[in-house]
């Protein structure tokens, strides 16, 4: 059974067609990449899946349930987490709070239990605290739990963002250019991390990436977008040989 099913997804920004007739079937456990030049509509697809935009046309289903019309937090609560192309941490807040905030939907106490500090509040807070710290420990950030997120160096901010996404306990993880701004050594490490969390948390991953090296290495299937249209799809080897891809994507690189 497909985990995420997207059918003829189309989105217009005024007169600009950002996404045109996009289709995708994501099976549980898969790692699929979406690539394409800047402005090809990749991030828009993530924004459509997570409810930031309501699509002009088309259908998105997660585990059979339609996501159209749901609020972002409702969609996230179903088990879809994402990271952002330009890191969007809560900069002034502590590393720990950044992760704990992502527990919002899975924290079960009422406002009254919180205001009066009833037993369930204490139990839940303790659980959230431990779970958040365990995640931070996995990403090597536990010692920095009380530090404001803005004071972390770039690489650690990227890792914190991934830890925060995992705190949602997602089934599907959407990674938006996780390798942006990384050097080759960091990219190697990132690929290891992605492989590892995928196995450890039994994740299905949809990846947007600019770095061909990352995509060719870890994706099982690739969809290539250009001007909102899907121009090719297949295994990394198939895509690499596709003349339309070379023209649209790799061609651009050779010109540069």
């Amino acid at each position: 059974m497909t985990l995420l099913q997207i059918r003829s997804l189309t989105h217009w920004f005024g007169g600009l067609r950002a996404v045109h007739d996009f289709n995708l079937d994501l099976l549980p456990g898969e790692l699929v990449a979406i690539i394409g030049p800047n402005g090809a509509g990749k991030t828009t697809i993530f924004n459509l899946i997570t409810g930031v935009y309501v699509p002009s046309q088309g259908e998105i289903r997660f585990e059979g349930q339609s996501l159209i019309g749901l609020q972002p937090h409702e969609i996230i609560s179903l088990g879809i987490a994402r990271t952002f192309q330009n890191i969007r941490l809560f900069k002034e807040l502590s590393v720990l709070d950044n992760v704990r905030i992502a527990h919002y939907a899975r924290t079960h106490y009422s406002i009254w239990e919180a205001l009066l500090r009833l037993p369930r509040f204490g139990q839940e807070e303790q659980r959230v605290r431990y779970e958040a710290l365990e995640l931070l420990d996995i990403f090597g950030l536990a010692d920095l739990a009380e530090v404001p997120a803005k004071s972390l160096p770039y690489g650690q901010q990227r890792r914190l963002e991934m830890a925060r996404a995992l705190a949602i306990a997602p089934k599907l993880l959407l990674l938006d250019e996780p390798a942006a701004g990384m050097n080759p050594a960091e990219i190697d490490q990132l690929m290891d991390t992605i492989r590892w969390i995928r196995a450890e948390f039994r994740l299905t991953i949809l990846l947007i990436e600019h770095q061909m090296r990352v995509v060719m290495n870890i994706a099982e299937r690739i969809k290539v977008l250009d001007f909102g249209q899907t121009i090719a799809e297949g295994t990394p080897q198939e895509v690499q040989r596709n003349p339309r891809v070379i023209e649209a994507y790799l061609g651009e690189e050779t010109i540069l």
Binding site: T50, V52, Q71, P72, H73, I76, S77, A81, R82, F84, R88, L89, F90, K91, E92, L93, D97, R100, I101, A102, H103, Y104, A105, R106, T107, Y109, I111, A114, L115, L116, R117, F121, E124, E125, V128, R164, A165, A167, I168
Partner: peptide
């Protein structure tokens, strides 16, 4: 104090920091 140091209070802070990001990590901002 109880409000501020609870899941709701952290939600409040996340709205101040970045409301869209807050809703995208499951905070019911409304």
């Amino acid at each position: 104090r109880n409000f501020v140091y609870s899941s709701f209070g952290r939600g409040v802070l996340s709205i101040r920091e970045d409301e869209t990001a807050a809703s995208l990590v499951s905070v019911n901002t409304r």
